[in-house]
Design a protein around this nucleic acid. Sequence first.
DNA 1: TGGTTCAGTGAACATGCGTACACTGAAAGT
DNA 2: ACTTTCAGTGTACGCATGTTCACTGAACCA
Lengths: 227, 227
Amino acid sequence: MRKVDEKKSASTLTFMTGDASGSLGTRQERKLRTRQALLDAALRLLADGSLASLSLREVTREVGIVPTAFYRHFASMDELGVALAEESMRTLRAMLRDARRKPTDDAISGSVAILVDQVRKHESHFQFLVRERYGGVADVRRAIATELRLLGSELATDLARFPGMAEWDPDDLRMAADLMVAGMLSIVMALLEVGPHPQGLAEVVDVAERQLRLIAIGMVHWHSTPR
Amino acid sequence: MRKVDEKKSASTLTFMTGDASGSLGTRQERKLRTRQALLDAALRLLADGSLASLSLREVTREVGIVPTAFYRHFASMDELGVALAEESMRTLRAMLRDARRKPTDDAISGSVAILVDQVRKHESHFQFLVRERYGGVADVRRAIATELRLLGSELATDLARFPGMAEWDPDDLRMAADLMVAGMLSIVMALLEVGPHPQGLAEVVDVAERQLRLIAIGMVHWHSTPR
DNA sequence: TGGTTCAGTGAACATGCGTACACTGAAAGT
DNA sequence: ACTTTCAGTGTACGCATGTTCACTGAACCA
């Protein structure tokens, strides 16, 4: 077990404001900043270990406030977890919006490129989602599951706009979209595992593109194949 | 936090042996039985909560032995986790062997049926795998990842035996197999979430079969589609 | 038969935890 | 200028945890 002097740990708050003499912003702003500092600290600490094994005291220690102050922002660690889930899903959804905005000539390699880029940029958010998706805290699991289902239907309606997809059964669209989401998530984990290593990355990207392509080909011939 | 009288909890050991007056089997056998009781108890307790938040004392309490006796069997909870991972992967691999042994006329619905059956029969093993695959304990994660990679190559060689797959690039086979494994695992989680509810189960099975079929169709046309 | 091994015991410990409570002092409201 | 609000402080508590150590007694072996 790690042993730390609670008083001496670096204060994220003064670090963030860059002004140790304080007195910045209105009271609401300052509160929001502390709240965000708690979320950021938690996310940072979640690099090793799951939410279930992260203690309230660790988080406040990292931020540089006293344990009891935590309750000014969240009723429990579980609540903080749900907030983290929402924050993470916001970046995931932003990614999808990004992909929708600029359609490239090759939708597949374009999508994968965006995925790689976003995972790199928001590593800890994605890590959190993948780790806690089936993790120990029920509320968080539910929150992620709900958002992920929503994401699935968004992708399904996107798919519907492709040429030749118009007359597809919505249910079939949904199942294809879900398969893609499942594949995407396993790619995300592979990306996180491979780290910044450039050769491994190329390999992962290659596999991802081929997998999506395989699905795409399946979709093209879906209706012309005997059941 | 749950509060329990350590002395009064039901003893799994005497329950399992069915002989409270003891004296069954050689010393080695008895030791192995306790070890297994620890694994079973842990698996049972893991129904709610992840490995990272499961304490040594909880497990021994459930088994009915004193906390310190734990160390006669495992050096730490992490080690128990790795043992659980191995045990769970053994049932997963058994499933694959099962599927290989009896090829049906429709490989897809046959495979899905076997999957459903096995998940039902070894619910906690599958739950453990899915939960801890990206969970908090690094050693366990590694153990599962290794075994899962092995399972991927097994499936790839299985795929190679299908008609028309002979001349496939091994790397392409591997990527298709991995996609299937990813899909399978997300199906497993769906099965666990849906529980015994028969209508939801039918829905999940239906989606699973269509997803596998989609991949299969993609594979059929893989080489005759322009890149 | 007698000595050795060793799975399980039981008491004790230091530590980290969540949370209750009374507090302070600066910002916000009047 | 005053009162009120409230984010953060500091202390203190009871509790569960991992691990230590010396122990017991049945199974084992010679």
